[in-house]
Simulated scan of single mutants.
Amino acid sequence: MEEHMKKIKVNIFLSFLLLTSIITTACGAGSSQDTKVQSAGQGEHHFKLTTIVAPTHSWTKTAEKFKEELETRSDGRMKLEIFPASQLGPEADMIQQMISGSVDFGYITTAYLASRNKELNAWLMPFLFEDIGDANKMRDTEAANQLLDLFSEQGLVGMDWLFTGSHSILMNSGVMDSPEKFKGKKIRAPGSEVINDFYNALGASPVPMPLPEVYQGLQTGVVDGVNASADSAYSQKFYEVGEDFTLLNQFAFNAAVLMSKAKFDSLSKDDQNIVEEAMKVAIDYGNELAIQETVENLELLKKEGLNIHKPSSLKAFQDVTEQIYKKYSDKSPLTKEFIEEAKSS
């Protein structure tokens, strides 16, 4: 009888061990399944986006639209923190932050980026586009997509092109409707080679200056004028320190929409799709907003007392324009292709 009881106890103990093993295995499988879900990109993501413009600028509003789309499409898993007005430093710092992965997205001006890759000067050819709507038609062309592909070599993903209003000339004083008017003037320009070439060819001195410093530069006479859109003229309040705005529309000013390649590659395919779709919707919105706000901001600038001038003809600038087209076309087949495609559209 005692021997029988021992056998019963042993069997109970073995059964307990077996049950424990089954429970542990099941829990382990559940944990493994959770890991698979997490690795499939179902976890939360907290992104950062940076740009140089003011909180009231259309690019910041575009970033807010992107934030909204991300949260909606991911059921709240994706959050976005926006840093406008160069809060994270100048554009050179923004690029390095995206390459390292400490910042995820940036709206970086093509004028700055062209200092890193000369091919991007294609967007900045003077008088290539009649207005921002005309420039926006180039966004999905083969040449424009080839320019986006260049960013992969720098640890970045080129996602799209975001426009602000075409750039014209805002001056402390003076109507700038002919090349002669530019001689001896100091013009704040973004620092791109082609924009510098344009002003130098007109006899002006292009002055590089961070956007947040331009207001004071105009106010103190460090510069005589600024290369500006109606949007930036209003959002940066340049009308308070300038008198005349000549609508040359000489440059279709835009930004490359960039993402950290390290961050993009870390996302699951599904989450990559969410990011891409959300950004596409946001940029569509932003470019339409820029077109709309150009008209609205010109009216607001008039109400603020800024004198608006529209030249009847731009023929006086033709020689300088063709000279610059030839110089950059000779340097780059892609730039030549871009110019020809823009002219034919």
Rank of each mutant, 00 (worst) to 15 (best):
S74R: 14
S168F: 09
S173F: 03
Q146K: 15
G76F: 13
P84D: 03
A144M: 05
L148T: 07
E91R: 01
D140E: 14
E69C: 06
G76H: 12
E142K: 13
F105T: 05
E71A: 13
P126W: 00
H167V: 09
L170C: 12
S173G: 04
M98K: 01
G174R: 06
H167G: 14
F163M: 15
S100K: 14
P84T: 04
S173L: 05
D131G: 04
E119R: 05
S102M: 06
Y107C: 13
L70E: 07
L150K: 08
P90I: 07
G89Y: 11
G89E: 09
V157Q: 12
I169W: 00
D160F: 10
K137E: 08
I169E: 01
S115W: 00
A114V: 05
R73T: 13
M98H: 01
M78I: 08
L128V: 05
G106Q: 05
E69N: 15
A111Q: 00
A135H: 08
N117Y: 10
M138N: 02
Q87C: 03
L124G: 00
R77Q: 12
V103Q: 10
T110N: 14
E68R: 11
I169H: 01
T72F: 12
G89Q: 10
F83M: 01
I95C: 01
N136H: 04
T72C: 11
L80H: 03
N121I: 10
K67F: 08
D75S: 08
W123N: 04
G89A: 10
G133F: 02
A114H: 04
I169F: 02
R116I: 10
E119V: 09
E68P: 05
P126R: 00
L88Q: 13
P90V: 04
M176K: 05
D140T: 14
M94A: 15
Q97M: 08
L88E: 11
Q146H: 14
M78V: 07
K137D: 06
G76N: 14
W161V: 15
R73G: 00
L156E: 04
G133R: 02
D134M: 07
N172S: 14
L80D: 02
M94L: 06
L113C: 06
G165M: 04
D140W: 00
D160L: 09
V175W: 12
S86L: 03
D149E: 13
L80Q: 05
T141S: 11
R77D: 13
D104P: 11
S115C: 10
T110Q: 13
G101L: 15
N172W: 01
F151K: 09
D104V: 14
A135L: 07
R77G: 09
A122L: 02
K67V: 03
G158R: 08
